[in-house]
């Protein structure tokens, strides 16, 4: 089981956490919703739950609940720029298809 961050993603997370002034790390997850079944959760994490799976990569703590882990295993979190827009991107090997915009997906 693993979840990794690219160096660019890790640097941005660290920068955002510094700007925010607090936080344990980030929480990755999935939840059911959206036009194609599942949607990603990407949040700052202030506390961990008892059954969280915790990874650390490039100095960033990543918290994932066990249920989400089923859908996220092997995911690499990246930070990229597309035109003027920039943000995080889930490179998730489990995804079979995604909706047109990519905000939700199917496994």
């Amino acid at each position: 089981m693993s979840i990794t961050l690219t160096e660019s993603a890790a640097n941005h997370v660290l920068k955002f956490m510094e700007g925010r002034g607090k936080g344990l790390g980030i929480r990755l997850g999935v939840r059911t919703s959206g036009c194609s079944g599942m949607a990603y959760v990407l949040e700052f994490a202030d506390e961990s739950e008892a059954d969280d799976v915790i990874f650390e990569d490039h100095g960033v703590k990543v918290l994932v609940d066990p249920k989400s882990m089923l859908y996220l295993d092997g995911t690499e979190l990246d930070y990229t720029r597309e035109g003027l827009n920039e943000g995080f991107k889930f490179n998730n090997p489990n995804v079979k298809d995604a909706c047109g915009c990519g905000e939700s997906f199917n496994v």
Partner: peptide, 14 residues
């Protein structure tokens, strides 16, 4: 795919 931003805990939008 769409690029995501970090949200506050519990505030991720659909």
């Amino acid at each position: 795919m769409a690029l995501l931003q970090l949200s506050e805990p519990g505030q991720t939008d659909a």
